[in-house]
Design a protein around this nucleic acid. Structure first.
Length: 208
DNA sequence: AAATCGATTTGCT
DNA sequence: GCAAATCGATTTC
């Protein structure tokens, strides 16, 4: 079931530095596996989870939102690295992306699934009280709902800032042997590109 | 200006 | 297994 150990020193850890997001975007997508999303609610409560599934979206990639240029929706993708790009999908689901590359190079990693760490009961209520813990965060729209992300509140947030309400902090280093490469999900353009990565055998991955 | 589609999830058949 | 829900961007008339 749960495949990774709970990082012990997660509390008080500094967020991953901005340089982390300057490696090639597909490298960042792989390295984000095992890192930790930390969400601080207005109440001060802390929700967190280990990233177990990601997808890369690159310049020149027809499936990437930046492919047809800058719009109000995708503007944060064109901004500096280490910020969140949160957008509304299908009119109802918020998607969490992390912007990579220098300002002007609009690439990002979509965070597709988390393994919950802290605040599980709060996540459960944010997800309509569902009882199945696996289904709390095993999909991009699900995880965004579970940690109360919205485009209005969280698009553009700096995830490298220790006082930010959304941060990515160091978790585990995951060896390549534990990472499965596969095709991205739910897209029509560039559907054959193997730019989806997930932790082998992890129960919280959206689809094996 | 109107219709269609999408990096999805949920509920009902 | 299929369709609805719903908003922003793209495509079409």
């Amino acid at each position: 079931m749960s495949t990774i150990a709970l990082p012990k020193a997660a509390h008080g850890a500094r967020p991953l530095p901005r340089e982390f997001y300057l490696e090639p975007t597909l490298t960042v997508a792989r390295r984000l596996l095992g890192q930790i999303v930390v969400r601080t609610l207005p109440t001060g409560e802390r929700l967190s989870g280990i990233i177990v599934e990601t997808e890369g979206y690159l310049v020149g990639d027809p499936a990437c939102h930046s492919y047809r240029g800058k719009t109000p929706r995708n503007a944060s993708m064109f901004g500096p690295p280490g910020h969140a790009y949160v957008y509304l999908s299908y009119g109802m689901h918020q998607m969490l992306n992390l912007v990579c590359q220098d300002e002007g190079v609009a690439e990002a990693v979509l965070v597709r699934a988390l393994e919950p760490l802290e605040g599980v009961e709060t996540m459960r209520s944010l997800r309509g009280g569902i009882t199945n813990s696996i289904q709390l965060t095993n999909g991009p729209g699900k995880l965004a709902a579970a940690i109360a992300l919205t485009r209005q509140e969280d698009d553009g947030v700096d995830v490298t800032d220790p006082k930010s309400r959304l941060q990515i902090i160091p978790g585990q280093i995951v060896p390549d042997s534990e990472i499965v490469d596969s095709k991205r999900i739910g897209i029509t353009q560039g559907a054959d590109l193997p730019w989806r990565y997930y932790l082998r055998g992890n129960a919280y991955v959206s689809r094996k």
